[in-house]
C-alpha cells in the first residue's frame, strides 16, 4: 500500500477527523482581532497558580478538558496524547499528560509542534494504532520571555523584528470515523538553516523552512487552485513577506492565499512589532479562526504550515545559526 503522493506528501488512508477542539488564551490575545472566539480566557498571567509555568500548564489542561467535554468523552478514551510547548524539557505538556493519564508522546518542534502533532496523530490513526488521539500545545508570554530572553521586569527595548509570544493553548481530538472536518494529508518538514543568527528575528530565519515545505506539498499535489489558504504558523509580518517573495521565485504565486497566524492574532495597534509567535499561536488561531470557518463551509481546504525555530539559548550564545523546520498538514471540509 502506497500512502505517498509524489515525493514527500503523506496521504492518510482515511481522513483523521477533528472531532472536537478547544482554545484558551490570555487577555492580550482576547483584545486582538480574534477576541471572543476563544473558548476560555485566562483573566491574568498567573491564574491563581504559584508560577507562570504552572499557569501555562493549566492553559493547556483547560483546553484539553474543554475539548473532551465538548466531545462528551473522558481522557482515558484517548489512545495517545501528542503535544509540546516551549518550556525546557516541555514540562507543561508532560504535566498535562500526567493529569490525563494517557499514553503520551512529548514533541519538541518549537512553534511547529501543533502541525507536527496533527501530522503524527493522523499517522497513528491511519496506521490503525489508535482510534482517538489528542494533540495539545501551549505557550505563555512570560515563561518564554524569562527562559529565552530577559526577565520580564527588565527595561529592554524590543527589536522591531521581535515577535510576541502568544499566551494560549489549543487542544484537538482526532478520531477515526465520520465527521465534518479532518486532516487528510501532510508533509514532514526538513531542517532548513539559512544562516540567520539573530534570535530576535525569527521570521527571517523560519521563512526558508516554510517555503521548502510549501513547495514540497505543491510540487507533489499541484492543487494550489483548490486550496483556500496556505496558513503559516508564526512567520510574522517580516517572514510572511519573505516567504511570499521566495515562493514567487519558485513559481508559486500565492499572493492572496498566504496567511500567517502570527499576523492574525494581534492587531498592529497592540505594539507586538512583527506579530505573534509560540506554540500557542497556531494552536489558538487554528481553533478560533479557521476550524469554525471550515465547519461552517466558508472554507473548503487549507494547508497549515507550522513553523518552528529549533534554537536554544545555549546554541545562540555559542554563535550557532538557527535551524528551522516547518511541518504541513492539509485540513479539509469533508462533505
Amino acid at each position: 500500500m502506497n500512502n505517498r503522493i509524489g515525493k514527500r506528501t503523506w496521504q492518510f488512508s482515511a481522513p483523521a477527523i477533528i472531532a472536537s477542539y478547544a482554545t484558551t488564551a490570555g487577555i492580550k490575545e482576547n483584545e486582538g482581532p480574534l477576541g471572543g472566539h476563544f473558548d476560555f480566557i485566562f483573566p491574568d498571567n498567573l491564574f491563581d497558580e504559584a508560577s507562570w509555568e504552572k499557569a501555562e500548564q493549566k492553559l493547556q489542561q483547560y483546553a484539553l478538558e474543554i475539548a473532551l467535554e465538548k466531545r462528551g468523552v473522558e481522557s482515558d478514551t484517548i489512545d495517545c496524547l501528542l503535544g509540546g510547548d516551549l518550556l525546557n524539557q516541555i514540562v507543561a505538556t508532560s504535566f498535562t499528560a500526567r493529569w490525563a493519564g494517557t499514553p503520551y508522546f512529548g514533541l519538541y518542534g518549537a512553534c511547529s509542534t501543533l502541525a507536527e502533532g496533527l501530522l503524527l496523530a493522523g499517522t497513528l490513526l491511519s496506521g490503525g494504532f489508535a482510534q482517538r488521539t489528542a494533540v495539545c500545545t501551549s505557550s505563555h508570554h512570560d515563561t518564554a520571555e524569562r527562559q529565552l530572553r530577559f526577565p520580564t521586569e527588565m527595561g529592554v527595548q524590543r527589536a522591531m523584528t521581535a515577535q510576541w509570544t502568544v499566551t494560549g493553548s489549543g487542544a484537538y481530538l482526532l478520531e477515526k470515523g465520520q465527521g465534518n472536518i479532518g486532516v487528510t494529508c501532510g508533509v514532514c518538514g526538513k531542517i532548513i538553516d539559512n544562516g540567520t543568527k539573530n534570535n530576535m528575528d525569527m521570521g527571517t530565519a523560519m521563512a526558508s523552512a516554510a517555503v521548502d515545505t510549501i513547495c514540497a506539498y505543491l510540487d507533489d499535489c499541484h492543487d494550489l487552485a483548490s486550496l483556500d489558504y496556505i496558513v503559516t504558523g508564526d512567520l510574522g509580518h517580516i517572514g510572511w513577506e519573505i516567504c511570499q517573495k521566495m515562493l514567487l521565485q519558485r513559481g508559486y504565486d500565492v499572493k492572496n492565499k498566504l496567511l500567517d497566524c502570527g499576523m492574525l492574532i494581534y492587531d498592529k495597534k497592540q505594539d507586538t512589532h512583527a506579530g505573534g509567535s509560540g506554540c500557542g499561536c497556531s494552536a489558538t488561531v487554528l481553533g478560533a479562526h479557521f476550524l469554525p470557518q471550515l465547519t461552517e463551509g466558508k472554507l473548503k481546504k487549507i494547508l497549515l504550515v507550522g513553523t518552528g525555530a529549533l534554537l536554544s539559548p545555549t546554541s545562540t550564545q555559542q554563535g550557532e545559526s538557527i535551524p528551522c523546520i516547518a511541518h504541513g498538514v492539509v485540513i479539509e471540509q469533508l462533505h
Binding site: T161, G195, T196, T204, S208, I238, I242, M246, A274
Partner: peptide
C-alpha cells in the same frame, strides 16, 4: 548561502 539570503531579505527588514 547565508550572505545570499541576507541580500534577498534586506528589503524586508523593518525600519
Amino acid at each position: 548561502a547565508a550572505v545570499q539570503y541576507q541580500r534577498l531579505v534586506k528589503s524586508t527588514a523593518p525600519k
